[in-house]
């Protein structure tokens, strides 16, 4: 299979002004250099779906911005579909699609369908091609009722669906998604993950997805690259990471009873408060379903929350050497 993304020794630093007094800062400011990305190397095959994960400030967004031609790197070599982003930015743009969860390409006061039309001119699509493509995407994303509403009236989840339609309009070979599920509720996250996976399956699109949500990588990607402090710390198939760390789930139970004891293999108590219990479940030893059934036997449950462990915890474990 051909290489779709090739990154070698990528580097990027930012100059940050040091804190100082008002007058000193005005006349003699001092700067410090922060290495946001420090020698990152990896490659992606065509059609691969890879999660690029790490905690806040790890360098994920900076890397994806260099790969999509937004930022100029300080050093290293990158090829995206055969193009060097900062040299062949315009030619490369026909081959890539981008979604930035923290920023929109949609026009705030206008319906999303107007932005789609503008983008069709940006990508030199014929009118017939645009009409048939938009129909396909709107049907696939079940977005018929939202694309005609002004963007300002859309929920975050609806807006994100429109963002992904916009990014797929010109049939990109590579899709860069930067925190596409940030700020979304659980249901919307699920919808977005399914849609990205489906679109990639159908068109063979390579996906590089940044996130600090382990759910994104579990449900969308086959491989995960973990980055922290600008360094690559792991590059593994998701199943290996899952068997190593994502096997843990955090369950929070709210119940009528003041306290219950969940003595089961693979269940570890994190926090016990009156009418509330927080436990960690090792899914390789016991299923979440079995834990919940046991909890229901022992108490009258009022609320249940099941969460993935925070990315920070996974990084800590990786640093501890268990995975490498």
């Amino acid at each position: 299979m051909a290489q779709s993304v090739f990154v070698e020794n990528l580097q990027k630093s930012f100059k940050v002004r040091k804190k100082s007094g008002f007058l000193k800062g005005l006349f003699s400011p001092e700067y410090t250099t922060v290495k946001a990305v420090d020698g990152v190397s990896f490659s992606l095959e065509e059609g691969e779906r890879v999660a690029f994960v790490g905690p806040n400030g790890a360098g994920k967004s900076t890397t994806i911005k260099m790969l999509s031609g937004i930022l100029h790197p300080d050093g290293g070599h990158v090829e995206i579909g055969g193009f060097v982003p900062w040299i062949d930015r315009k030619s490369m743009a026909y081959k890539i699609g981008t979604v930035f969860g923290q920023r929109s390409q949609l026009w705030y006061h206008l319906p999303a369908q107007d932005t789609f039309e503008l983008l069709s001119y940006a990508y030199d699509m014929s009118r017939d091609d645009f009409k048939s493509r938009i129909k396909t995407l709107v049907d696939a994303f079940d977005a018929g009722h939202i694309v005609s509403k002004p963007v300002r009236q859309l929920s975050l989840g609806e807006r994100m669906r429109c963002e992904i339609i916009a990014s797929l309009l010109h049939r990109p070979k590579i899709l860069f998604l930067d925190e596409p599920t940030v700020g979304l509720d659980v249901v919307s996250k699920g919808v977005i993950r399914d849609l990205v996976k489906k679109a990639s399956d159908e068109d063979g699109t390579t996906v590089l997805l940044t996130s600090h949500d382990t759910g994104d990588m579990e449900r969308v990607c086959d491989r995960v690259i973990v980055i922290d402090h600008g360094h690559l710390v792991a590059d593994k198939p998701v199943r290996e990471l899952r068997s190593g760390f994502i096997r843990e789930k955090i369950i929070t139970l709210a119940m009528k009873e003041e306290a219950i004891a969940l003595d089961m293999n693979g269940v570890r108590l994190i926090e016990a408060m009156p009418h509330q219990l927080r436990v960690s479940v090792d899914t390789s030893q016991v299923s979440v379903e079995a834990v919940l059934q046991q909890a229901m036997k022992l108490s009258s449950l009022q609320d249940i929350t099941v969460e993935d462990p925070p990315m920070e915890d996974i990084i800590k474990e990786i640093y501890a050497g268990s995975l490498l």
Partner: peptide, 14 residues
């Protein structure tokens, strides 16, 4: 433009 630093401000175009 070569010195553009982007940023992560939440926002929307329009």
């Amino acid at each position: 433009l070569r010195f553009y630093e982007s940023g992560n401000r939440f926002g929307i175009r329009g």
